[in-house]
């Protein structure tokens, strides 16, 4: 048992926690009755996915992805001297010293788009409350059923 934990959970403990958070969000999105609670669950689901992406770009002992001034000027000098060895196209920055910037870029826009779509969902909740007087899913379904029966 201890051996299994050591070889399976410990190297991937963060992914296990992301899956737990993701399943909490999924459970709330399916099982909760209140529409606002469903939206909170969906947002938690979304953040779990964002966490998964960003944690892919983490490097042990790496710094934030901002190339500091001295290294930047060294890069310009490198190009001024003809780009180093023949055939070399890239400045020899060690990529292990900086976190992977690509997941950050993709997730940064996703967060802002996420809050904009959350606003649309909340607007729909307000319209539903204006029409049905409640945000509980079973009561809304009952009212829709009675309207259909009348017709």
């Amino acid at each position: 048992m201890m051996e299994w934990i050591k070889t399976t959970i410990v190297p991937h403990f963060n992914f296990w926690i992301y899956v737990v958070i993701m399943m909490l969000g999924l459970w709330a999105a399916i099982g909760k009755n209140n529409l606002i609670k469903k939206l909170i669950g969906l947002s938690i689901f979304q953040t779990a996915i964002l966490l998964l992406y960003v944690s892919m770009g983490v490097k042990e002992g790496a710094s934030i992805p901002i190339v500091d001034e001295t290294m930047g000027e060294a890069a310009v000098d490198f190009m001024a001297q003809g780009g180093g060895a023949a055939g070399a196209t890239a400045f020899p920055i060690n990529p292990d010293l900086f976190a992977n910037p690509l997941p950050h870029v993709l997730m940064l826009t996703a967060i802002v788009v996420g809050v904009a779509t959350l606003g649309v969902a909340l607007a729909l909740c307000q319209v539903i409350f204006r029409d049905f007087g409640t945000l509980e899913e079973p009561e809304i379904l009952n009212q829709i059923q009675t309207i259909q029966d009348d017709v």
Binding site: I66, V67, G72, V76, A90, F91, P95
Partner: peptide, 19 residues
Amino acid sequence: SSVHYLQNTYLDTRVPNVV
């Protein structure tokens, strides 16, 4: 491609913040 971005961003754009 992230390695390419890290190594070429300052040369291409003079922007220290890669993101």
